[in-house]
Every structure is written in C-alpha cells, then in structure tokens.
Write a protein that binds this DNA or RNA. Structure first.
Lengths: 113, 113
DNA sequence: ATTAAATATTCCTTGACAAGAATATTCTTT
DNA sequence: AAAGAATATTCTTGTCAAGGAATATTTAAT
C-alpha cells in the first residue's frame, strides 16, 4: 500500500497511470505522449511493475503495458475506512446540533417563565 | 492531489494520518504513539499541513491536530474514475464472453451438419 | 547471418528530503 | 517577571531516487 503511494508520488509515473487508463500502450507510445525519453520511460514502467500497478504483455518486438486492478482496489478499501469516519463525525455533529437545539428550547422556556 | 501522494508516501506521515483517524491529538501524543522525537513529529505535521491533510486547533499550550476531509474526498473522486474503467472493462469482457459463446454454439451447429 | 527497431540496464551526477542536534518561540503558571 | 512546558525552526549530514548518456538485450526483417 505504502509502495503504491511512493510510486504514484512521482509526477511522471502518475501521468503514465492516468494515460494507461485509456487502454494499454507500448513503451514508445507512453514515451511519446508523456514527453519522456525511452530509457526513463522504461525505468518508470519498471517501478510501476515492481509496485504491481501495471502488467506487461509482450507482443513481438513491443511490450504492451496496462493497468492492474488490485492496487486500486486496495486504495479503495483503505479509503472506505475514512469514509466511515466522516460519516460518524457527521452523525455525532448531528447529535450535537440536536442537543444544542433542545437546550436552546429549554432556554426559551425559561425566558418565558 | 500529487502533493497528497507525495506526503502520504512517507511512512511516518502515513502512520500519523492513520493515527489521527481515531481523533485529534496533540504533537506530544502523536510523537509518543508513533515513537518519533518531537522535532521530527512537528516537521511531519508541518508537511501534512502544507499538503492540507490536517488542520490545527491551538488550545493553550498545545496544538491539536486533526484530519481534514477534503484531500480524502479528492482521492475518492479520483478513484471513482478508475472504478468506472474496471466496470466498463468487465462489461466488455462480458460481451466478449457472450460473443465467444455464440460462436461456439455456431460451431456446434456446424458439427451437426 | 546482418541489420534495424524496440526496449531494458548500467553508471554517473545532482537534487530532494528525512533524521539528529541544538536552539528559538509561545503560552502557562507562580 | 521568571521559569517551565509544549511546540516550531534552523543547520548539518547522509541517503535515495530521478534524469542523462551510453550500452546491452531482444525480436523482426531482409
């Protein structure tokens, strides 16, 4: 998981991932569209491989890279726990506000007396 | 967004974020639980602030840090687009499989003739 | 079998950044 | 006002990773 963050933290690699969202591409194509030299592109793709973010499909001379599902699922699961937290916080904020309102009503009552 | 990744890529900072999931904490408390010295803890919290991942609530002598919602929402929105992609891929895989099946049936028909 | 295209790897240099140590700042308490 | 917590900042040093340049490797084509 941490490896995922570290790998995506590099701007070019993030861009590559965004690019591969549209479908598999060869090294040369990635290099062209990102505007990187071939060796650095290969290196970044290697890093993405090591992190399990992409997989490769060798076709003849070319190596076609494409995204892998799992790391994104992991991210999603991780985020899920945060979603719960916000929900809980909102709920208790809600309770709090209702509580305030009750107290406020009491005050009004007292004012009247 | 990229700043979020870069910031969370540092293991101690990631741990701090996970810790703050349970609620706001002072610098000293974070330092204790993560096992970091106070200055490094302050530095990491500063980095988290700069990335907008946390906010601070000064209470007397202490500074209470807590998570901010927005960056996680951003991550969520970003991930959303990936969820769509997998869905589409699965759909077309589904189409493909159905297509295969149709062709297969034809073959069976041909065998019979 | 040679040559050419596509990709990977190695070596080097440089920049970013995290920890350590020391010090500065802010707020409280007396 | 002085002293003491809690926290922030500065400076230095060491490590790691990214880009550049050159080269190696793999596969295709002739």
């Amino acid at each position: 998981m941490n490896k995922t963050f570290k790998t995506l933290a590099e701007p070019n690699r993030f861009q590559i991932v965004e690019l591969l969202r549209n479908g598999p591409l060869s090294v040369g194509e990635v290099a062209d569209r990102i505007g990187l030299r071939q060796p650095q592109t290969s290196k970044h793709l290697r890093a993405l491989m090591d992190a399990g973010l992409v997989e490769v499909d060798p076709i003849a001379n070319r190596r076609i890279y494409k995204l892998r599902l799992e790391p994104f699922q992991e991210l999603d699961i991780w985020l899920e726990s945060y979603r719960h937290i916000w929900k809980e916080r909102l709920d208790s904020l809600d309770d709090y506000l209702q509580d305030l309102q009750r107290k406020d009503n009491h005050h009004h009552d007292e004012d009247k007396e």
